[in-house]
């Protein structure tokens, strides 16, 4: 695809693109990695703490404690989105907030908020999975194939 496009470019376009590339400031990768590691790690530590709390104080087992933990993280992320602080944290942390379940919650809540002006049915209902939809679709598709692989004789199960 990229090669097909490159072929269509005129020499002037190619020359300009090389010039533009030279002037493009690079993304601060190391800084982004460190921030993502610290914030993403902190969210994971919080999740672990919540899980331990559910196991030790509320009688959940290792297996069942996952659901209430995720629910609380989603609730916190949704609340932070509604209060308008999540986007600021996320622009600092990048993948640190996007990869955990908090990013998924934010993508749904932010779209729902944004499209509330178009009404509850066509606006909120019709748009809230606009960003999260592809995560669901490809998550389910991937789970389907992993499930098939797991059920193959001699593997897993």
């Amino acid at each position: 695809m990229a090669q097909a496009n490159a072929k269509k470019l005129t020499p002037i376009q190619r020359e300009y693109q090389a010039l533009a590339k030279a002037y493009e400031p690079s993304r601060p990768l190391l800084q982004n990695f460190i921030r993502a590691f610290v914030v993403g790690g902190a969210i994971s530590v919080l999740g672990q703490g919540l899980e331990d709390m559910f196991i030790h104080y509320f009688g959940f087992t290792q297996k069942t404690a996952g659901n209430p933990t995720v629910a609380i993280l989603i609730l916190l992320a949704a609340l932070a989105t509604g209060l308008g602080v999540f986007d600021k944290l996320a622009s600092f942390a990048g993948a640190g907030t996007a990869v955990p379940v908090t990013g998924f919650a934010n993508s749904i809540v932010s779209t729902a908020l944004e499209h509330k002006s178009e009404g509850y049915v066509l606006g909120v209902g019709g748009n809230m999975f606009k960003l999260a939809g592809s995560v669901l679709v490809f998550g389910v598709v991937a789970a389907f194939f992993i499930g098939i692989i797991r059920s193959l004789p001699g593997l897993g199960g």
């Binding site: 400031p25 690079s26 989105t81 622009s91 996007a98 779209t111 944004e114």
Partner: peptide
């Protein structure tokens, strides 16, 4: 932002360009 990119409250990191 709403029309061209992401919702206002959506958290994303933008490149320096």
């Amino acid at each position: 932002e709403k029309q061209y990119r992401y919702p206002t409250e959506y958290g994303s990191q933008k490149p320096p360009t």
